[in-house]
Design a protein around this nucleic acid. Structure first.
Lengths: 201, 201
DNA sequence: ATAATTATTGAACATCGCTCAATATGACGC
DNA sequence: GCGTCATATTGAGCGATGTTCAATAATTAT
């Protein structure tokens, strides 16, 4: 099969995460299988465990990659945005989740085993996401309310996340609500204070 | 083993859901096992499938029961509440999730297989939950804003859900936010309009 | 060339959801 | 009481899963 000269350790790690991420995108969290990933890249299941130690860490690697792509897309949308940065933020958050349901859901569907603490590189990925929120919220707030920024950012993250979850799982449909994104944006505007918002391009 | 004279069909169904619900509360969604449930009540795995048809429907029955308990607890809190009904609503929502993490999480962790539509009795359970939200939001809104009630109720549900998820999974801790419940209540008050709120008992 | 080190394997184990021919049980007519 | 039929219950069997680890292959060091 595969020879160890074919790939350095780092290359092999990337090869596995690549395929695992593709697999997650295709079949979703429930149907994800480490064996299938191994088969597709031509290595045995054992090698997969040698490299990542556990399925948990492989899934964290997959999710960290997802978060990275997600943050990149949000940042790109923010660069394109002219005035309405908060609107662009919420919109691109939603857009990514809608366009990549499987990998997006996996971030929240997977739970690390109890007692296991998150690796630093995964924490860093999470913080890059929350970091964008805190930064943009701070920028949208007047000087006098800067100290509220972190709490407000958390609140906004929770608000947008909730709307996103219920938009995708059908809860909003069940309620007869048909524009969850607009709803979320409206909520966010109310919360950041009506002073500098309400709708412009 | 168990004789058919021991239980009517309805009793057997209840026996299974009882044990499955207990099991879910004890070990959580990931470790839940239909085989284990069968073993504990002294029936075989086959009987379980005869009664419920699939694991999906058993899990829906477990989750429907959870939602029932949840709604009952919220309604009880609302009856005790004097003035601040919205505060009581959010607080009891949070309290249930915190006190029954496993069964609460299972409601959102479980996904029905694609294409399978939800049984009416499960829809009814979901609607009893959303119904409380719509009713209370409507009661908290002035006459002039009654038409917004359903959309606002959905928004509030999403907002509270998001805060609840991030409170339990550690995201708020990661952000340095230490009072997610109060944060959620504040957000809800802002959204319903400051006219009749801001903090009184 | 030989020894020591490291990478890779994949059969083996326990467990899972799920199926279905076989069996046990109960009810009914005579 | 007996035989017949319908129904309830079983649990071995199937194809998967995650995980382990002695055995093997490949590389490096001596």
């Amino acid at each position: 099969m595969a020879r160890r000269s074919d790939h350095t350790r780092a290359e092999l790690e990337k090869l596995i995460v690549d395929e695992a991420h593709r697999q997650m995108e295709d079949v979703g969290f429930q149907a994800f299988s480490a064996r299938e990933v191994a088969k597709r890249i031509g290595y045995s299941i054992g090698t997969l465990y040698n490299v990542f130690g556990s399925l948990n860490r492989l899934l964290l690697a997959v999710n960290a990659r997802t978060i990275g792509l997600w943050v990149a897309e949000i940042e790109a949308a923010l660069e394109r945005a002219e005035n309405d940065r908060i609107g662009a933020l919420v919109e691109s958050y939603f857009a990514f989740a809608g366009r990549h349901r499987n990998i997006w859901s996996a971030v929240y569907d997977h739970r690390s085993p109890a007692g296991e603490e998150l690796p630093d590189w995964y924490r860093a990925a999470l913080e890059s996401l929350t970091g964008v929120m805190v930064r943009e919220v701070a920028a949208a707030l007047p000087e006098s309310r800067q100290m509220e920024a972190p709490a407000l950012a958390g609140s906004l993250l929770a608000l947008v996340h909730g709307h996103c979850v219920f938009a995708l799982d059908g809860t909003f449909r069940l309620l007869g609500v048909e524009a969850p994104l607009e709803l979320a944006v409206t909520r966010v505007r109310e919360i950041l204070g009506d002073g500098q918002s309400r709708g412009e391009s």
